[in-house]
Each structure stands twice: as structure tokens, then as C-alpha cells.
Amino acid sequence: MESMLLGSALSAFATGAGALPVLFLRSATHRFRDILLALTAGIMMAASTFSLIPQALKQSDLMAITIGIALGVILLTLIGKVIPHFDLESKFSDKLDKRTILIIAAITMHNLPEGLSVGVSYADGSSNLGGLIAFAIGLQNAPEGFLVGLFLVNQNIKRLAAIAIATGTGAVEMITAYIGYKLSTVVEGLVPYGLSFAAGAMLYIVYKELIPESHGDGHETSATYAFIAGLLIMIYLIHWFG
């Protein structure tokens, strides 16, 4: 339990750490933004396909994997229907208006399955999977925190407040990490479904959100290289620590 709480806290608060550069910056180029998004996509793709799914397959069968992934995709689809995607570069007003709050809520909701993946991974208990997934989520949370913080600063939100809000969008992951961990340790046979569910949710985010966003401004080649770099980084981490 202690290691799960520590791992989920570190991965969650990586969002706030990633937002710290907004103390000095008010803008970032399209290319840099796309590289960050694609790097994040590569990390999440590798974590899902080379870590979460294989570990789930060791403990169950293809039917459990299919059900878990499908449930993860369905949940993210429903979240997308209720709280639609917004462009983080949009300009609204000089205060924290309703639409800005809605964007923050959407980002927070999309972070919930990531916390779940951390909690379920720690509940697996048979390997270093929990720490590895927590580290992977932390790696992808940092650039997300930077982009959220930058967006808020561009809405003329005070820099420290922007960092605090960005940190809060990631901190909710600790709640779902705890829920995922407790459910997986109490309900027998739930771990492979939980791992597959987390993989499905992450893969949905990669293909539905991150890859299209990183290819929307004419920097497809740079984004592709960043995606592959993120993929390789995570593969190396899985090889060394998995």
C-alpha cells in the first residue's frame, strides 16, 4: 500500500513539476508542443502494449483482455461525449471563465483512468509493474502539466495559480489509483481486467487525442520522430526494470 501511495503521488505531482517552466515562459512553438504530445503518445503506447497487456495476458486469457480493453475504450468514449475536447491554444478571456473551467474539468476527467492504471499495476504484485507504470504516467504527465500551465498563463491566470491548477488536474489520479488498488486486492481475478482496462483507456487517448493533436500543425515528421523516441524510452525502461 505504501509503495502504491508513493508511486501514485509521484506520478500525479509530475503534472505540477511539468508546469513549473511557466514561471519563465508564456509561449511555446507549435513544433515544441507537437513534439511533447507525440513523445507522450509513444510512452503511453509502449506502456500499454509492452507492459500492461502482456502482464494481463499472463494472468488470464484473450477474452479477459478483450473485455478489459473494450471497457476502457467505452469509458473514454463516454467521457468524450459528456465533456468534449478543447484546443489548449484557444483564447477566451482574461479570467477563469466557464469555458476555461470546462477545459480544466475535461483534462482532469481524462486523467482519472491513468491513476487507475497505476493502482491496478501495483495490485498485480508479481513484478515491478506498479513502479514502472507509475514512472511512465509521470513521464507523460510532465509535458501535459506544461501545456496546461501554459494555456492558463495565456488566459492571464497568475503563474502560481496556473501551476496549482495544473497540479490539481494530476492530483486526482491519486484517488483513482487508490480505488483501483483496493478493488483489485479485494475482488479476486480483477487484476487482468483492470490492467487491460487501463491499457484500453490509454490507447484510446493516444490515438484519439495525442496523435491527431501532434499532427495538426504541419510538424508531422518531428512528431513522428518524437513518438518513436517515446516508444523506445519506454521499451528500454521495461527491459531494465520490468
Rank of each mutant, 00 (worst) to 15 (best):
S126G: 09
G115R: 04
L96A: 10
G125S: 04
N128H: 13
L96V: 09
S126W: 03
E114A: 10
G115D: 00
Y122G: 06
L88D: 11
D124S: 09
G119D: 00
F92G: 14
I101G: 11
V118G: 06
A105C: 08
N111L: 08
D94S: 15
L112V: 13
K98R: 14
L112Y: 08
S126A: 04
I103E: 08
L102C: 11
S126H: 11
Y122H: 04
D124M: 06
I104K: 11
K91N: 05
N111S: 09
L112A: 10
R99P: 13
I103S: 15
G125L: 01
E114T: 02
N111E: 07
S93L: 14
T108R: 05
A106D: 03
T100F: 04
D124V: 00
L96F: 15
G125Y: 03
D124C: 03
L116H: 08
S127E: 02
L116N: 03
D97T: 12
M109P: 09
G119H: 01
M109N: 01
V118M: 05
I104M: 03
S121H: 07
S127N: 13
H110L: 10
K98D: 08
T108E: 01
V118D: 00
I104N: 02
G115I: 07
E114Y: 11
P113K: 07
D94F: 07
L96R: 14
E114Q: 14
G125M: 04
K91H: 12
H110R: 13
S127Y: 04
K95D: 11
L96M: 12
G115A: 04
A106G: 15
S126E: 05
G125P: 12
G125T: 00
E89Y: 13
K91Q: 12
L102I: 03
S90N: 10
T100S: 13
M109C: 11
N128V: 09
L102Y: 06
K91L: 12
G125W: 03
I104E: 09
D97C: 12
L112G: 07
Y122P: 04
V120K: 07
S93C: 11
L96W: 05
S93M: 14
N128P: 13
